[in-house]
């Protein structure tokens, strides 16, 4: 047993299995975590495998001992059973992998949506051209913020709450019916990463205004420019940041 523990081959196998267990079972158990998607598991395991191979082969002596069991299994007469078993297992695994790759499945294919697609540099809002680059929320310069925020709150609860939810966390009543899920504004990956003009664009143009990389499953977000005025949208934007406590991304100040 101790000989096995000291042997680089078995150490490598052990490390590999341990990494798999950590990624697939331990990470999801951590507080606030969730299952790791299989694409990421594959990527992690490939990295770990390369790391292990580097470790076993960067020293001549270790590399030689590492290869011993492999070599023996392939040529030793007494290990014929193991050899045959291994060959059968490899064939079976390849077969199973091929089968799982080609078999028809009912699940929708994994999708790659760009969550923050590139905004146009300007948009047409009800026939008026608005330049998004460098645009700040105009309401921030119009007197007290509180009335604007209150107005934004009212509009949010009139229009947005069924999908984006009471807590602005994307868990509204209708949320579970959508793919993609409604944006979670509390998450540090949504409005916290964006300028207010980007948020304005997304509200004004909604799902139909998404560029191609926002597909394949298109967002159900309506184009709010048909329902709200420019100031109303800006006040909702103000409310979103005020309520979540995030700061909008600011434009870089050019030296000029």
């Amino acid at each position: 047993m101790r000989a096995y523990l000291r042997h680089p081959f078995w150490q490598a196998v052990g490390l590999f299995v341990l990494a798999y267990l950590v990624i697939v079972f331990v990470i999801p158990m951590l507080p606030g975590s969730a299952m790791v998607p299989s694409s990421v598991v594959l990527q992690y395991m490939a990295t770990v495998l390369v790391g292990i191979l580097i470790w076993v082969s960067d020293d001549e002596a270790r590399w030689t001992t590492f290869k011993e069991p492999l070599h023996e299994v392939l040529i030793q007469p007494r290990l014929k059973l193991v050899r045959n078993g291994l060959l059968a297992a490899v064939t079976l695994v390849v077969g199973c992998l091929t089968y799982s790759q080609v078999k028809a499945s009912v699940a929708a294919p994994p999708n790659l949506r760009s969550i923050h697609p590139a905004p146009p540099s300007q948009i047409t809002f009800r026939g008026k051209t608005i330049t998004l680059v460098g645009l700040e929320n105009p309401l921030r310069k119009q007197g007290e913020l509180a009335p604007h925020v209150a107005e934004g709150r009212r509009i949010y609860y009139q229009n947005c709450v069924p999908c984006h939810g009471d807590h602005l966390d994307g868990q509204g009543h209708f949320a579970s019916g959508f793919n993609p899920l409604p944006a979670n504004f509390q998450d540090n990956g949504t409005i916290a990463q964006l300028t207010e003009s980007f948020v304005f664009w997304r509200i004004a143009k909604g799902g139909p205004g998404l560029p191609r990389e926002g597909t394949p499953w298109n967002s159900a977000m309506p184009a709010w420019e048909d329902f709200l005025t420019e100031d109303e949208i800006w006040s909702v934007v103000l409310f979103l940041y005020d309520q979540t406590g995030w700061k909008p991304r600011t434009w870089e100040v050019t030296a000029k």
Binding site: L30, A34, V36, P37, S38, L181
Partner: peptide
Amino acid sequence: WGTPHTMIADSRELAAMGGSHHPLLG
């Protein structure tokens, strides 16, 4: 370095993660 922010995931995994950002690894 290689962990993607927006992960490739099928609908079951998306539902478990609550979006295409992993709550922890994201």
